[in-house]
Design a protein around this nucleic acid. Structure first.
Lengths: 137, 137
DNA sequence: ATTGACTCTGTACCTTGGTACAGGGTTTAT
DNA sequence: ATAAACCCTGTACCAAGGTACAGAGTCAAT
């Protein structure tokens, strides 16, 4: 199994080389084995892990949260099982709420586009009207 | 129509009082009218606007993006129509992608809970297995 | 008319999540 | 054997999004 240098990992996962080392320092990715001269040599897995981090970040999770998420992803038991289950249950709720809100934002944006296309007066736009009334936005 | 002081707005929208002024400086909320002695007096609307900002932030949007989103929300024409439609179209794509990813994370977390409950060896957990194979996580 | 709880502006400081050297060693290709 | 292109650690710096004063004015109640 061929191993990767830090710059290869950085390139493959499309992040800055310093970011890879930063994630190691923050305890998000585990410290890889080193060559005799101290160079980090990563398994391909590290690239997946970093991409996982980036996706989670884009969804609004903090690095501390992602530490827990990664632990689930990699099926590790760095944190006690109790804590992990508790964490998972809470995050599922939050995710459902986020999906709900994202759908609201999507409707809002769609209404903006259709408003522009049809050039209707805004108080006659049915989507906007419905959203305003429901108090969901 | 009763108007609110800055601290009342802050309290009602559950943010720091300095944050309200910060959003004004950043151009996210419009500068409210002042009393004779210079005190800001807000319409109730300001609370909605701030809550909108907070929801958008929680979904991973930056304050610059939220400036545009708010403009759609409030049906203002601060930005040219062309730019807004373009913006809306791009954001709709991003939102769909985010929803997709959130569903993936949700499945991951659900699998973690069921794994713990059933205490199955992980390679026998059908949800985890499916997710790993699809390459979606 | 004075005390306490507000408000104002302006500037300084903080946290998160990086990013960029400096100063030094290593590896590879010529 | 020497330059180019890596890597190391450590520390400094940066941008975004706030948060916290300081110094001064205002308002409401006693």
């Amino acid at each position: 199994m061929k191993r990767l240098t830090v710059s290869q990992v950085a390139k493959a996962s499309n992040v800055n080389i310093e970011t890879v080392r930063y994630y190691e320092r923050r305890g998000l990715i585990s410290a890889p084995p080193r060559t005799h001269s101290g160079y980090r040599m990563y398994a391909n897995e590290a690239v997946d892990d970093i991409q996982f981090i980036k996706r989670a970040q884009d969804l609004g999770f903090s690095l501390e949260e992602i530490k827990h998420l990664l632990c689930v992803y990699k099926k590790e038991d760095y944190f006690p099982i109790e804590e992990m289950s508790q964490f998972a249950a809470v995050k599922i709720q939050e995710i459902e709420e986020k999906i709900h809100q994202l759908n609201n934002f999507k409707s809002l944006l769609e209404s903006a586009i259709s408003r522009q296309e049809s050039d209707l007066p805004k108080n006659q736009c049915p989507i906007i009207k419905k959203l305003s009334e429901s108090g969901d936005l």
